[in-house]
């Protein structure tokens, strides 16, 4: 229940009982997309944070518990939105296809 699923980012050093972690990977087909941009929007649609994906397509946010939208921008692709719920004690893992 508490760990990232297989293939997710290493959670070493992250106290998931105190951080509502949202993380995941951006993929085009089976290929990870590095250098995509993932935006975290709050329940009103307001921008809260944004990170570029790593070379392996991974991203992570330390959010507050609640409902969020992930908006992913990648080269040669339309923006993609995902709804996600963050909470303490459990990592929200999201796989984004572009």
């Amino acid at each position: 229940m508490c760990g990232a699923k297989k293939g997710g980012l290493d959670l070493k050093g992250v106290d998931i009982d105190k951080e509502a972690v949202i993380q995941g990977q951006v993929l085009r087909g089976d290929e990870p997309v590095g250098g995509a941009y993932v935006r975290l929007l709050d329940s009103s649609g307001e921008f809260t944070a944004e990170v570029p994906t790593s070379a392996t397509g991974h991203f992570r946010f330390f959010a507050a518990p609640g409902s969020w939208t992930l908006r992913t921008l990648a080269p040669k692709a339309d923006p993609v939105d995902h709804q996600v719920v963050a909470q303490y004690g459990e990592v929200a893992e999201v796989s984004v296809a572009v």
Binding site: K18, E19, L40, D42, S44, E46, F47, T48, A49, E50, V51, R60, F61, F62, A63, A64
Partner: peptide, 18 residues
Amino acid sequence: RSPDEYAGRLLAPAHLPQ
């Protein structure tokens, strides 16, 4: 800052540890 930081629900941007 973001609305949550303004209101006091967060102390820092959400991609950084609190």
